[in-house]
Amino acid sequence: MAKKRGKKYLEIAKLVDKTKLYTANEALELVTKTRTAKFVETVEVALRLGVDPRHADQQVRGTVVLPHGTGKIVKILAITQGENIDKALEAGADYAGADEYIAKIQQGWFDFDIVIATPDMMPKLGRLGRILGTKGLMPNPKSGTVTADIATAVQEFKKGKLAFRVDKLGSIHVPIGKADFEVAKLEENFKAFMAEINRLKPSASKGQYLRTVAVSLTMGPGIKIDPIVLSKEL
């Protein structure tokens, strides 16, 4: 059954030419005009890459610090011990500790957005692999969430560090800001993210790497960006 859209959405959708491939600048200027919600919506980027994630050498996974952050206030849980607990809290972690938080998670507690752990705690976190893994919250060195320098990691994620990973369909979805950001700031965030995606292109990826690129607001229509033009700009 087709999803029924409200009158406001249908009016806003008329602003977007579904047959057109926009430049990044055009798309980001237009996306801020497609607000339909009463709350401040998130600006999201959706990519489909020319990779086969079933092969280890075609995985696209990494992190990037967005120049202007995502606009979202993230809650960080630091799983660590000793003096690192104080370091994490001083750096801005919302929670920091070890066994007590592991036990809370096992009991169904999830009042956090990111888990950052020091390497010495990973054996204990292993028992939470199934619980955290299904929610995409399991710390991993490749995402910068397993590190001995927990203070720096906490600071970076609080400032807007973004972790991303291609899914089994070859797609990536990430937030790059809020609808009330200046267009120039959205552009800088978008370019920083896309530059990192381009840098991570697997050597095993053949043909067109950026297959589709689109931006949208949380409740708004997708706006397609010309991937060939974008590739030349990166």
Rank of each mutant, 00 (worst) to 15 (best):
G97W: 02
K161N: 11
I131Y: 11
L49H: 09
I225L: 06
L128W: 09
E188H: 08
F110L: 08
V45M: 12
K4L: 13
K191N: 15
L125Y: 02
M122Y: 01
S203A: 15
E26C: 01
E11Y: 14
P123R: 01
Y9F: 14
L132V: 00
T152K: 14
L210V: 01
S231M: 12
T80V: 13
V154W: 00
L186K: 10
T134P: 05
K33M: 12
G136R: 03
D180A: 07
A37F: 12
L230P: 09
M219C: 10
I150S: 04
R5V: 15
K142G: 06
Q155K: 15
Q106Y: 12
I114C: 02
R199G: 04
T218A: 12
S205M: 04
I12F: 07
M121A: 04
V65L: 15
F193P: 12
I131L: 15
I197S: 09
I114P: 01
S171L: 14
Y9N: 06
T152E: 11
V60S: 06
E100P: 05
A117M: 00
G97I: 03
L186G: 10
K201P: 07
R199S: 11
K87I: 07
Y9T: 05
N140T: 09
D57R: 03
R61A: 10
M122Q: 00
A91E: 03
G69T: 02
G126T: 04
F181R: 00
A153R: 05
V215E: 02
E188I: 07
A214G: 14
L15F: 08
E188A: 12
I102Q: 04
D113S: 05
D113V: 03
A179K: 02
A103F: 03
G129M: 07
A103P: 02
M122V: 00
P175Q: 10
G160K: 06
K3V: 15
G82W: 11
Q58W: 12
L30Y: 00
E41I: 04
L200R: 08
S205C: 03
T34M: 06
S203K: 15
Q81D: 13
A214M: 13
K185F: 05
T19K: 15
P175I: 11
A78F: 05
K75D: 12
K8C: 03
D180L: 09
P139W: 03
G144K: 13
G170V: 08
G6T: 12
T218N: 14
K135V: 01
A96H: 05
E90I: 06
N84W: 13
V74Q: 07
A96Y: 04
I131M: 13
E182A: 14
W109R: 13
D57Y: 07
P175F: 08
G69A: 04
K224V: 08
R127C: 08
K8G: 05
A91T: 00
A24W: 01
K33D: 06
